[in-house]
Structure formats: structure tokens, C-alpha cells
């Protein structure tokens, strides 16, 4: 996960440690079935790990470079490779 996030998706690196901690925590909350504010059907225990969900769940972490698209992609990729 760390390797994937560091590979190419960050710019200055200032926010990187916080983004990684949040991503790890967020993925584990997702895996435990916790819904988010953008989950469409609250009653459905099956959640989809979409870009929308990642954006909402990571929304407290600011990146001054604005590398959000890359961060979202990195988390999606990390989840697919190692998170499932």
C-alpha cells in the first residue's frame, strides 16, 4: 500500500504521511462495512469501493498541491491489489 501510494501520486510530500494513515484507516473502516455520507442505500451491507466513496472518506485530508485525482487513483489501486 505504502509503495503504491508513494510510487508517483504525490508531489511535494508534505501531506503524504497523513494521507497514508487516513487511507489505511479508511480502507479498514470500509472493510468493516461502515457506510459513508455518499453511500446510496444505507440498508445495503454490500458497499462498492468507488471513487465517490474514496473522495468522501478522505475529505478531511488536504493536499496543497491539489494532487487529489492521483491520490484517489492510488488508493483505488492499492485497494484492488492488497486491500481486498
Amino acid at each position: 500500500m505504502l509503495r503504491l501510494l508513494l510510487r508517483r501520486y504525490f508531489q511535494c510530500g508534505y501531506c503524504t504521511p497523513g494521507q497514508i494513515c487516513s487511507a489505511v484507516g479508511m480502507i479498514s473502516e470500509f472493510q468493516s462495512g461502515l457506510p459513508s455520507a455518499v453511500t446510496e442505500d444505507m440498508s445495503d451491507p454490500q458497499l462498492e469501493f468507488s471513487a465517490e466513496e474514496i473522495k468522501e472518506r478522505m475529505s478531511g485530508n488536504l493536499c496543497r498541491c491539489g494532487a487529489y485525482v492521483g491520490i484517489t487513483e492510488a488508493i483505488q489501486q492499492a485497494y484492488e491489489e492488497v486491500g481486498k
Partner: peptide
């Protein structure tokens, strides 16, 4: 799960407040 099924608005309201 009980709250999510029976009181989904409560779940939504909480999840829209503050941060994780």
C-alpha cells in the same frame, strides 16, 4: 445494521457531520 435499515436518515445525518 438495525439503524441503517430502520432509521437510515439517522445514519446519513451522523455521517454528514464532522470528520471520521
Amino acid at each position: 445494521q438495525l439503524v441503517r435499515e430502520r432509521y437510515p436518515v439517522l445514519s446519513q445525518a451522523i455521517l454528514m457531520g464532522a470528520s471520521a
